[in-house]
Write a protein that binds this DNA or RNA. Structure first.
Lengths: 352, 352
DNA sequence: CTGAAAGCGCTTACAG
DNA sequence: CTGAAAGCGCTTACAG
């Protein structure tokens, strides 16, 4: 079961190991690399000795010798939301399946140059960015990578024209939300944490405006935001506070569109605390379709990001660049989200 | 702003780079390693050239040459709960502050040997395990690491006697919960997902039994579990289903202790769906004190794991082993959790 | 299968 | 500051 013979000091080189097994360094190397023309008996001998001694060849030496590092760098936003974590997890799994090792690091504003240098010194073959970063700083990093010839992909951050990007079409998601709510008779909308500057034409605000226009509902009169009244935090508490403010309005909206599930859940909490019934007196929608959406009271209508698909396309875009001549044009791939309808919008407002 | 001069092919060695700058290889190396006795002008020259060319020294060569890898391996459970993610994040941050790079990988049952070999081939200086793994397999890995002389720490998994361990005292947490509920008049308890096999004397069940005994409440009569009726999943749905089963009992318990917040929230959902008022007709408690606990209706009483403290102690235990002779005795450090009381238990049952 | 040799990109004395 | 040299642990032809 355990090793028969444990050297006090572990073996650290093939030379030492070869001596231990009684074979030539070359032969050991061949076995380690699965090269042909070796007696099964020799292979077995080496493998048993590896088990017994726990010897592992020094990865730094192996890779120095020109062997591909088979490593990718993953640069994460420093905000571990459930959604971000799911993406990270899916991404690492995808790379593992392709026999790539992932180096995971957190992007800290102002420190990103150093981070990329670390990745490059580790000779990663490609870098993926997940999340939202200061646009100008990220753009600089992308330019450097392009100049350097290191492949990349940016997930969820669409504001960098020179970058290869994969993102869910948030505009599409909000169009679906608005259409759904308009069909339920809603004509007035409270926006919770949603502003125009995010993601441009693929952004939520763009989708809302487009959908309202399609229904001949003037945005200025139908949609309202109170974000400016509170410090933006994108969490439960922020949603709760926003809802409390909306609750005091004499002509408050009948439907509330939140930036994410946390804000939506907080908003439901806040509205209910003010004695407002959901969905009877107010509809609320989230974004991300986290599991918790099925456990709130009422359950929460939300937009699913289709994370698996996003990651599938992301890795495809990334790995497709490795070993290829640099692309002249930046790639942009969008993923269609999916509206999941639950109780929080399950009420039809009577026409006035 | 951008580089003045971008070589078509990036510079890949100090030799090439030194030629580019017009200095000796030795001098460049000195600058890179911040060695004394260099003219400020030379340093500046090298640094500017690095910026311009994007040259980074090959980490594999640097580390081959005997320099410490300053790398630790983090082995995660393949279950990214909010709590697990918080730990991972705190851990990586802690290591970064000590100038260690983290290699993060997922422990897959049956594949762990290979994973550890990968870490060892990367010459990590220590390995931390976070989460719950098959005990026998983990124990084997720990024995191998001990034989190999590589430091380790196991967080949250206390069943491996030969391992250095850091864990929250779950028994203590449940003692606090039971004491709180008994003080509120509860005498009958439903257990949701809690079984005896977990964590031995530091486990939840042990704490519950101990606390009940202290109040002279016979466990067999006061505590009840219906876990066996459903497939264990430790998620919202599991809690909901368990609650539905409890709701049908003629003499159902007045208090419910859940393994985690997800199960507790699911259970509240299930009890409420059966028309049972919380906390008026049933008290519910969770474990982990996730943010969502403050956003449920009613808000959820839960036990906080004190993650930051756990990670602080964990890194202390781990880094304390590096460069030291191996410990003869396994370390076990426990962290005291903290009960956070909220609405879900805020009702005193009348004495009968 | 063995053995001697070159080379990957770095660091580190050592002599100028 | 420069330059030549040794060595880290591996892989890969090459000749036996």
């Amino acid at each position: 079961m355990a090793a028969k013979k444990k050297p006090a000091r572990p073996i650290t080189s093939t030379a030492e190991f070869a001596r231990h097994v009684g074979l030539a360094r070359t032969t050991v190397s061949r076995v380690l690399n699965g090269q042909p023309g070796l007696k099964p008996k020799t292979i077995e001998r080496v493998q048993r000795a590896m088990d017994e001694t726990g010897f592992t060849p020094n990865a730094y030496a192996v890779r120095l010798k020109g062997k591909s590092t088979a490593t990718v760098g993953i640069c994460m936003e420093d905000l571990l939301t459930p959604t971000a974590v799911k993406k990270l997890s899916a991404l690492q799994r995808a790379f593992r399946m392709k026999h790539y090792t992932s180096l995971i690091e957190v992007f800290e504003p102002g420190q990103s140059r150093q981070l990329i240098r670390h990745f490059l010194s580790m000779r990663v073959e490609a870098i993926v960015f997940i999340g939202h970063f200061p646009a100008e700083e990220l753009a600089q990093r992308i330019d450097e990578l392009n100049a350097h010839g290191t492949p990349h992909v940016v997930i969820d951050h669409v504001d960098i024209p020179s970058a290869h990007r994969v993102t869910v079409d948030r505009a599409r998601g909000m169009i679906d939300v608005v259409n759904h709510l308009v069909a339920r008779g809603h004509r007035s909308f409270g926006l919770l944490g949603i502003s125009a500057w995010l993601h441009g034409k693929l952004g939520r605000m763009h989708g809302i405006m487009q959908a309202l226009a399609a229904h001949k509902l003037p945005f200025a009169q139908c949609a309202r935001s109170l974000d400016h009244l509170h410090v933006r935090r994108n969490d439960f508490e922020f949603g709760k506070t926003l809802a409390a403010s909306f609750a005091t309005l004499p002509d408050r909206p009948t439907a509330y569109l939140a930036l994410n599930d946390e804000i939506a859940i907080g908003a439901m909490h806040g509205l209910q605390a003010a004695g407002i019934d959901i969905p009877g007196e107010a509809a609320v929608t989230g974004f991300n379709n986290q599991e918790i959406c099925a456990m709130t009271r009422p359950t929460l209508t939300s937009v699913d990001q289709q994370i698996d698909e996003t990651i599938r396309v992301g890795t495809e875009v990334l790995l497709g660049q490795i070993g290829q001549p640099p692309r002249t044009k930046a790639i942009l791939r969008t993923i269609d989200p999916k509206l999941i309808i639950r109780q929080s919008t399950d009420f039809t407002v009577a026409a006035r």
